[in-house]
């Protein structure tokens, strides 16, 4: 066995963070944004079955970038947490804030204590009665948590995507408008790299889109606000 070398805690944390960041930067981006009638979650994801976006509870959705097996196990753990909580208290007692803080704790623990940190970045979104009551949380691989107002972007070259949303996003938009903003933002990294090789535009088939419907209880009488949009629906909305 070789000799144990001293590594300073700063260096150790930095190495882990760099490792996780590299893993996340390889993936494609995800955008979460509020609009008039709900919250839209849009991912660049050509796979129709391996989802990056999922339902957690009545008014709560989940989106992730990074390693599939890692965020999938986190998604399932989130569903279990929410269902146990809703079953033992009441459905209204399951909140995005509670879920986000549980995620933050487990990501933080894994970052410091495990062999390798999770190479994931998560978003937890909860749709409210009005746009001002929407909650969107961003969770990093190290367990840091941020509360975003209106929209967030994460994944590879998230800063470019976020910059486009900063410029475009406004409150009170229709779903079609919100989706067009999301696509414009997701295309930003492609245009940045377009000098090297021209890329096909982001069409509905390359997107995974789901919404949290604000009015689901009032209009449809259902308690579950999460709904996936089919490719046809997305194409129609983008063409408006």
């Amino acid at each position: 066995m070789g000799q144990q070398f001293y590594v300073s805690p700063e260096q150790l944390m930095k190495d882990r963070a760099d490792f996780a960041r590299k893993g996340i930067a390889r993936g494609r981006s995800v955008v979460v944004l509020s609009y008039r009638d709900g919250i839209a979650l849009v991912a660049e994801n050509p796979s129709p079955t391996l989802h990056k976006i999922g339902e957690i509870y009545d008014r709560i959705a989940f989106a992730a970038v990074g390693k599939y097996n890692e965020f999938e196990s986190l998604r399932q753990a989130g569903v279990r947490y929410a269902d146990v909580r809703g079953y033992s208290y009441d459905r209204v007692d399951v909140t995005a804030r509670g879920l986000a803080s549980v995620y933050a704790q487990s990501l933080g623990t894994v970052f410091t204590a495990e062999q390798k940190p999770f190479e994931v970045e998560l978003a937890v979104a909860e749709v409210g009665e009005g746009e001002s009551a929407d909650r969107i949380f961003r969770l990093n691989f190290d367990g840091s948590i941020a509360d975003e107002a209106g929209f967030l972007a994460m994944g590879g070259k998230a800063d470019l995507v976020q910059a486009v949303l900063d410029r475009l996003w406004g409150s009170g938009a229709e779903l079609g408008q919100a989706l067009r903003w999301a696509v414009a933002a997701l295309e930003a990294p492609r245009q940045d790299a377009a000098s090297a090789s021209p890329q096909e535009p982001l069409t509905a088939a390359l997107l995974e889109v789901a919404i949290l419907d604000r009015k689901v209880t009032r209009v449809h009488g259902s308690h579950r606000a999460f709904r996936r949009l089919s490719d046809e629906d997305v194409a129609e909305l983008l063409a408006q």
């Binding site: 079955t49 569903v79 279990r80 269902d83």
Partner: peptide, 8 residues
């Protein structure tokens, strides 16, 4: 509901 959410 749990099965539906986990399995899709």
């Amino acid at each position: 509901e749990h099965y539906e959410k986990i399995e899709g």
